[in-house]
Nucleic acid binder design. Structure first.
Lengths: 299, 299
DNA sequence: CCGGTTTAATAGGTTTTTTCTATCATACGA
DNA sequence: TCGTATGATAGAAAAAACCTATTAAACCGG
């Protein structure tokens, strides 16, 4: 039964019988049969199919909701029993927005010191992807904006506030300033994250609020790529202060991270975990670590 | 997997492999194998066995907790999907303390008018049994005291307050009074519920508070039996006012239900359902009915 | 201390269920 | 219209679940 519910979850995220079957480590006929069997026991169609996967029926969506809960609880149970016997162990699957990637370390380092048997998988994802994957049990927790877009059913622990800096080569325009305004930033060629990133949307909004038409001449989903382009002196970028200092840019002679004012915008970044009671032991431990670390990060 | 969890739940309430197997509709070796298999997949012993069932291990108790939740959610899922397709149907399993049995009708009658496909099973149980069976998913809801002993993790909907009456034959001692005190009640031969019933403990406490040593010369777990003994005129009993009126005693010339004062004690009786979110559709509907009915029952 | 009883584990065999491979039917796109 | 992608179906093989019968161990009353 629980295996069948996992089939349904896989189908929900892959929207494709074959790929869902792969994800579950079974063949496509096995998954098809599993779904069909659930439909027979419930006496209700769960999936609208034409010649391919189309969508879930209303009943299917409800079952999906329950499946998320039941599968999640089952995993939590396994993990908890294992932790009782062998201590906290296993793999924590995290996802973070690109601008938060550099600070994940402030969470993972003390966590690992406390629980050496725990392994991590950390992915760079958009804020929307983080929330979806959280819902679908694909990750255990995420690091994303808490105050900008609706979060859904999650537990949120604020970690720090993002303040924005103009990242620019020392010898480039504006490179010698101690502070700049958003209006000034809008006039220089910028490289930013791609528009599917919330950070990009935030910054673009701030730029447009000045009435200007910003020149975003390069975009990427990688902060490293942006960073390397700024080093050429031909682009500037905007990034959170904490990210800039973590990267050690403050020490560099070539690059500067200049506070951007008017307005001095801030956004809260924090840990989000599924709002389940009780949480899996690993997630609970991570949340506890986040609460411990948060005061050390506040400005 | 879920079947195995059901095995564990059955074992928890039967404390006996053979009886648990019977309850699950399988043979004893099947249940034994199921439990052993769980122990192997978890890598942990769940049950302490000597030559017979002894107890659950710490890990076993945790798994049991999860099992209650997961099995409950699975049933709720089935029920919900069925309700989506065919409307609210199925069997609602209730338990009520004996003194509340006569008023269950005020809940079931309007409920059945609204949902004709729903069937009921209603058992007479002690307040403690009700809470245990609620935990073990053996019943969907119960009717019991809300204000006297600790309830645990339940949703409680107050329905009415119990006030006490001396049930006595018209020609017996005290039979002609318009009100009596607890001290007077303590002096006549009484028949009451057995001491495992909370109602008995409440009344005995009230009697002892007067300093007297009450004569409880007959006890039973059946209100009907008590009632038939009072009719002989050789015993009196104490019962809630609402029960007395529901039984139509007020109309009878032979029996009277006389208010007991000093003090005029009251206890709240209500519906209790597992504090699960979301509830099964049947339980949710019953809770809604209880909320609807409650104002009509208040004095 | 000794047979009888209760209780759960084990062995062996049967049935049921699950899963796989291979193939087919259908729709979609170029 | 033909090639491709997708999911259903059929049939066989493998795995599992389950049952009956039996055994081993503890408990109990005399």
């Amino acid at each position: 039964m629980i295996d069948k519910l996992e089939f349904l979850l896989a189908l929900a995220r892959e929207k494709h019988f074959g790929r869902a079957a792969d994800a579950c480590g079974v063949t496509q006929p096995t998954l098809s049969a599993g779904v069909k069997q659930m439909e027979e026991t419930f006496g209700v169609l769960l999936v609208n199919r034409g010649s391919r996967f189309q969508s879930f029926t209303a009943e299917g969506e409800r079952v999906l909701d329950w499946a998320r809960r039941i599968v999640g609880d089952t995993r939590a149970m396994r993990q908890e029993v294992h932790a009782l016997k062998h201590g906290l162990a296993g793999r924590l699957r995290l996802a973070a927005i690109p601008t938060a990637l550099a600070m994940v370390e402030t969470l993972t380092t003390p966590f690992r010191a406390r629980h050496p048997e725990v392994q991590f998988t950390i992915l760079s994802r958009t804020s929307i992807e983080i929330l979806t994957q959280l819902d679908n049990l694909e990750i255990d927790a995420g690091l994303t904006y808490l105050d900008n877009e609706p979060l859904g059913r999650v537990t949120a622990i604020p970690l720090y506030t993002e303040r924005y800096r103009l990242l620019v080569a020392t010898d480039a325009p504006l490179g010698d300033r101690t502070s700049v305004t958003w209006a000034e930033v809008a006039k220089v060629p910028l490289c930013l994250l791609t528009p599917d990133m919330q950070n990009r949307r935030i910054i673009e909004q701030l730029l447009r609020d000045t009435g200007a038409d910003p020149h975003i001449t390069l975009e990427s989903d990688s902060m490293i790529l942006l960073y390397s382009h700024v080093r050429t002196g031909r682009w500037a970028s905007v990034m959170p202060a904490r990210l800039a200092s973590t990267l050690g840019l403050m020490d560099s002679k070539m690059l500067r991270a200049i506070p951007i004012v008017e307005p001095e915008a801030t956004h809260t970044i924090g840990l989000v975990a599924p709002a389940r009671e009780p949480m899996t032991p690993l997630t609970a431990a991570l949340v506890m670590e986040a609460r411990r670390v948060a005061p050390l990060l506040s400005d």
